[in-house]
Computed example of a mutant assay.
Amino acid sequence: MNKHPHPPPDSLVGTYINLREALVRFLTARTGSSAEAEDIAQEVFFKLQSVDPADVQNPTAFLYRLASNLFIDRLRSARRREARDDAYATSHTELSGGDLLAQTPTPEQILESRQRLQQLLAAVRSLPPQCQRVFVLHKLEGLSYGEVAVKLGISKSGVEKHMMSALKRLAEHRA
């Protein structure tokens, strides 16, 4: 017996599953990056978990609008981060003979970064083995879903399911 029945095609998740590939192509065209498109598509899936399907008149339009909004949010966030980083670099970088000198993090920043890294590594190690392999290959080694599927000898759909599971478990671990 199948432990995870397929959602009805008229549900939001069912619509998402049916449109996922088209949604990723749509996002790839906008972002210029299939990896970023995959990340946004995953984020769409997680956002769907908190949406009441009764509030959605047109699931297809809703998914594309949600994906567009998440893309725009990322774009704005990247611009803010870039402006903030430029401002920080300008105020915290010294010039020596016209050359920029490297910035040195404070001891507190180094300690905090090491602690966050250890927490992330522990969370990744807590994932089931195949889920962990998929996560490491995609997120840390930068392989596409297709490349991960070929490397591990599983379907692209299997890779997607492992990534959804990994991201969900890591988000729970972080909370």
Rank of each mutant, 00 (worst) to 15 (best):
A102V: 07
Q57A: 11
S96Q: 12
L121D: 15
G32H: 01
Q109K: 05
F46A: 10
I110A: 05
D99E: 10
G146R: 12
R116A: 15
F46D: 09
L95V: 08
A87M: 09
E172N: 02
A22D: 14
N2Q: 12
A122I: 08
P9G: 04
E82F: 05
V150F: 04
L12N: 03
T31L: 08
N69C: 08
N58V: 12
V148L: 08
F71E: 12
F26S: 07
N18S: 12
R81S: 15
Q42L: 14
R114A: 14
E147Y: 06
T15M: 01
S91A: 11
T15A: 03
K161I: 05
K139Y: 14
K3Y: 14
I17L: 13
M164D: 15
L48H: 04
D52G: 05
A83M: 13
L75D: 14
G153E: 09
A83L: 12
V136Q: 06
G98T: 03
E112N: 11
L23S: 03
K161C: 05
E43C: 11
V44S: 02
P7D: 12
R30M: 05
R114Q: 14
G142W: 00
L23D: 07
L95I: 10
D10H: 09
S157D: 13
E160A: 15
E94M: 07
G32N: 03
G98E: 04
P5H: 05
A89D: 14
E82W: 07
V44H: 00
L66T: 01
V150S: 09
H173F: 09
P9M: 03
I110Q: 04
R174H: 07
L137H: 01
T15L: 00
D85R: 09
Y64M: 05
Q42C: 13
Y64T: 07
T28Y: 08
S50W: 10
K161M: 13
S50L: 14
A78F: 10
S155H: 03
M1A: 10
T15H: 00
C131G: 08
A171Y: 05
V44I: 08
N58E: 11
D85V: 10
Q119L: 10
A171N: 10
G98D: 03
V150Y: 04
A87K: 03
F45L: 08
I40C: 06
R84E: 15
P5I: 10
V134C: 01
A61R: 02
F45M: 11
L101H: 01
F26D: 14
A35Q: 09
C131D: 15
G158L: 01
S50D: 15
Y64P: 03
